[in-house]
């Protein structure tokens, strides 16, 4: 008996060993795929246009998409739990309107900006409560949040509100140069910080790991004694807060707030997150991947600009990429289901 046992252990070991790298990092593969697509696009554009990739261009992609980056980080949390948040574009727009209006009334930005974040968090909390405590589908609950924020934006004003507040405009206007055309704005720094904090939360805190656990199998997570309800609620709060912050950044970016801002942004955000390798069924994905996804999105926009063709190609290309990723994800899931 003893001799067979050692053989058996050996066999089991043999199963686990050869693909050690794959076994450890399988969930990063979609992220690598996104990086591959990004690189392919850059190389292709470089070959086609001759002079494409410049420090200015890279810098401007970060600048132009910092709001989207922040939204994508928040969305990643929600999608990782297996949910979805359709309210982010509208919340970004509404908090922008609210902030611009408060600033116009003379409140200092040091009060206004936190208020905007808190408002976003509050709407996120509302969505989370509907999802967690009243079993409303995330899609519908966040839809209600979207309607609410859209309407409230119009309640604030039907017209665009110009922002003249110095600290807010400083966020966008300041270009920290780094020579040879490289620059970064405070909005870009904030966006990158959000990525960093988001990645840290997910990788190094129990809250973050519980987010993955809930997305992997909510029932199991509950059986393991993990705080499922609190975690799901918090994920929507994180997304709402990010939307509030995106409101600040977007207001700074455009120098004004307009109630029609951010229509369809929720779709861009979801697309970026999925392209970045996050599984829509939850439980697998990374904030860094979502960042890559946003860069892919920005790069598509830039290339289409360079080509001088219609901007509508952006949405079509994003849709096609989204489809590609979803189909591939579906195939992966089907294959692993067969193996079981």
């Amino acid at each position: 008996m003893t001799s067979t046992q050692t053989v058996l252990t050996g066999e089991l070991r043999a199963v686990t060993r050869p693909h050690r790298f794959m076994a450890r990092h399988a969930s990063w593969i979609p992220v690598f795929a996104a990086v591959g697509i990004l690189v392919a696009m850059v190389v292709g554009a470089q070959l086609y246009f001759g002079k494409f990739l410049t420090p200015r261009l890279v810098s401007s992609i970060l600048l132009d998409n910092s709001y989207l980056l922040i939204l994508a980080v928040g969305m990643t949390f929600v999608i990782l739990t297996g949910g979805i948040d359709l309210s982010v574009g509208a919340v970004m727009s509404f908090t922008g309107m609210m902030g611009a209006s408060l600033l116009r009334q003379g409140l200092p930005s040091s009060v206004v900006a936190p208020t905007m974040l808190a408002t976003g968090a509050l709407i996120g909390l509302g969505v989370g409560v509907l999802v967690q405590y009243f079993d409303v589908q995330p899609f519908i609950a966040s839809l209600a949040g979207m309607f609410l924020a859209r309407g409230l934006g119009f309640v604030v004003s039907l017209n665009s509100i110009k922002v003249t507040d110095r600290p807010i405009l400083w966020l966008q206007g300041t270009r920290l140069q780094a020579g040879s055309g490289w620059y970064i704005t405070p909005t870009g720094i904030i966006a990158l910080l959000v990525v960093l904090v988001g990645a840290g939360l997910l990788a190094y805190t129990r809250f973050g790991r519980t987010v993955y656990a809930v997305g992997g199998n909510e029932q199991s997570a509950r059986l393991m004694g993990l705080p499922v309800a609190r975690t799901k609620l918090l994920a929507y709060v994180v997304s709402g807060t990010c939307a509030g912050l995106a409101g600040v950044i977007f207001t700074a970016y455009t120098g004004a707030a307009y109630p029609l801002n951010g229509i369809g942004t929720e779709l861009d955000t979801i697309a970026a997150v999925v392209i970045g390798g996050t599984l829509l069924t939850g439980g697998s994905g990374f904030v860094v991947g979502s960042m890559i996804g946003v860069f892919v999105y920005g790069m598509i926009k830039t290339i289409i600009n360079f080509l001088g063709v219609d901007q509508s190609w952006t949405r079509i290309t994003i849709g096609a990429l989204l489809l590609l990723f979803v189909v591939v994800q579906r195939l992966i899931v089907a294959r692993s289901a067969r193996r079981r």
Binding site: I140, L143, A144, G145, M146, F147, L148, R150, G151, L152, F154, V155, L158, P259
Partner: peptide, 11 residues
């Protein structure tokens, strides 16, 4: 344009 608020309430 504010219709969405009512719609949100109804939803």
């Amino acid at each position: 344009a504010v219709t969405p608020v009512f719609m949100a309430a109804v939803v």
